[in-house]
């Protein structure tokens, strides 16, 4: 009885030491988690997550202050990617942060533009060209569709239009041959 106890305790101590040793010896350097989270975010910089941009949101997630379901532009893909990264369960998008909408791009109705530069100041990625009293225009390729320029425009000349699919961006749909449908 005593010998068994002793043996077990000895084993426990040995393994404990072994574990402790390997924890020190094989310590994995902490990855820059914020970078990794930030890499999963869509970088629309729209602020719908209630943080002033994607990186602050990433930092908040890393600190545990924000949840992973606050990014409407990233949608389900981002939530799943974050869940994978952080080893959590995916959850549906928090409706308080907005809803998943098709991707859009800002278009300025140029005749109406008065050249006030308010939208230029609002754009988080400098995707609007123009100067004071000059007509402004959106570089569609750079636009993230964040909506932030719509509000400041005093003459309401900015529209968010959905990005249309062309044959270059088209992709094959998920096969739809479910058994239930067939039978």
């Amino acid at each position: 009885m005593l010998s068994a106890l002793l043996a077990l305790s000895a084993l426990a101590i040995v393994f404990g030491l072994l574990l402790g040793f390997s924890a020190i010896k094989f310590k994995v350097e902490g990855d820059p988690l914020v970078e990794k989270i930030d890499a999963q975010l869509p970088q629309t910089q729209c602020g719908q997550c209630s943080y002033p941009g994607c990186r602050p949101y990433a930092e908040a997630i890393a600190k545990g202050e924000a949840d992973i379901n606050q990014c409407p532009p990233g949608g389900e893909t981002t939530i799943i990617a974050l869940a994978d990264l952080l080893e959590r369960d995916p959850k549906p998008l928090n409706p308080e942060n907005g809803e998943i909408k098709p991707k859009t791009v800002a278009i300025i109705d140029e005749p109406r533009c008065i050249g006030c530069t308010l939208c230029i100041q609002a754009c988080p990625v400098d995707a609007i060209l123009g100067a004071a009293k000059q007509m402004h225009t959106v570089i569609a390729r750079e636009c993230t569709g964040c909506d932030l320029c719509v509000e400041p425009c005093p003459v309401d000349c900015i529209d968010m239009v959905p990005i249309t699919q062309d044959i270059l961006t088209w992709k094959w749909p998920y096969p739809d041959t479910s058994l239930e449908k067939a039978s």
């Binding site: 994607c54 400098d126 993230t144």
Partner: peptide, 10 residues
């Protein structure tokens, strides 16, 4: 790629 560009631009 687009988000990388957006991140850099941001």
């Amino acid at each position: 790629e687009k988000s990388d560009i957006a991140r850099r631009r941001h």
